[in-house]
Design a binder for these strands. Structure first.
Lengths: 90, 90
DNA sequence: ATTATAGATCAAAATATTTTGATGTATCAA
DNA sequence: TTGATACATCAAAATATTTTGATCTATAAT
């Protein structure tokens, strides 16, 4: 959740919407520097939000649908509990 | 989305799961200082994630279900597009 | 073997966010 | 009208995150 907190990470996430991308794809599409992208990728990976798969020199990243689903479930749980007024400061 | 990026804000959001809370509620439940809470509340409010309602000296905060729903929709859209492999670096 | 490419990692610098403590405003109770 | 409570706001300090540029590893092509 906390890993959603950077606009460039959101941009990278959006790029993964259509499937796998490598760092070089992201470089071309965003004009961010390589190390900058690797840094954000690392944060997304540590948060379990993306998966990686190496193929030769390339590393393909893609969204981890399961963890996205878990986040949705958490958001759902936020709104699906009792909404009865609690008295303040009792 | 970016406003989810602080663990204390997530805690405050969780507290609102059961309904409205005021700053003093949050103070009691979290032991955070008043100005610290107001600071985080402000960020959540500016993000449209919570709504407020004043009643006398108290301000009641609650989750804005609509904006939570929009976030869920965005997450859904991330995973519901074509997953066909794209060639890297073409 | 040499060179090129993809990407990870690192330390320092730049930048942004958060915390603190003080002060301000509004409401209410005595 | 005085004092207390709830909360907002502000500037400075503390802390955390991000960016940069350099260097490193691994793979692959010549």
């Amino acid at each position: 959740m906390v890993s959603f907190s950077d606009p460039f990470r959101l941009e990278i996430i959006d790029l993964m919407m259509d499937g796998e991308v490598c760092v070089c794809d992201i470089m071309k599409l965003t004009k961010l520097s390589q190390s900058r992208i690797s840094y954000h990728i690392k944060i997304l990976k540590e948060a379990g939000l993306i998966s990686d798969r190496q193929e030769g020199r390339w590393v393909y990243y893609s969204l981890n649908k399961e963890s996205l689903f878990l986040i949705k479930e958490w958001i759902t749980s936020l709104t699906h509990y009792s909404s009865n007024r609690k008295r303040c400061c009792e």
